[in-house]
């Protein structure tokens, strides 16, 4: 059975908290904490402190973060990125290309339907 002193015991606090200790060292530390009031109190404070860290609120970025960032990059890049013109008045090429395809198809259909009449001519 391993017997620990105060220094050895406190050195194990983090690994014990993270459940990263071998079984024999867990037993040794728990034995020590049961018999040593000082280390027991120390570990309770340690546990409360580390527990409080993980319980801190997650701070959210301000609502205007994204807009401010775009403004900053626009300014720094001298208008190369996030230009209001480029983002706001962007030409919808996808829509234009679909409409154009539709127009071409319509012209093709009209022309093809008109062809047979020509064939009947002498």
């Amino acid at each position: 059975m391993v017997v620990l002193d105060h220094v050895q015991a406190t050195e194990m606090f983090s690994a014990y908290w993270e459940k990263d200790l071998p079984a024999d060292q867990i037993r040794a530390l728990e034995e020590h904490l049961q018999s040593c009031v000082v280390c027991k109190k120390e570990y309770q404070t340690f546990e409360r402190t580390v527990g409080a860290l993980s319980g801190l609120h997650k701070m959210a970025a301000p609502a205007e973060f994204s807009d401010d960032l775009r403004g900053r990059i626009y300014k720094r890049s001298r208008g190369r990125f996030f230009s209001p013109k480029r983002t706001g008045a962007r030409v919808p090429w996808e829509v234009i290309s679909i409409v154009m395809l539709g127009v071409i198809l319509a012209i093709y259909v009209v022309l093809t339907l008109g062809e047979p009449q020509k064939l009947h001519l002498p």
Partner: peptide, 17 residues
Amino acid sequence: VKSRLHRARMALKDYMA
């Protein structure tokens, strides 16, 4: 990382105490 983190946690614990 583990050893420095342990030092940091112990310092936090002492501060809190």
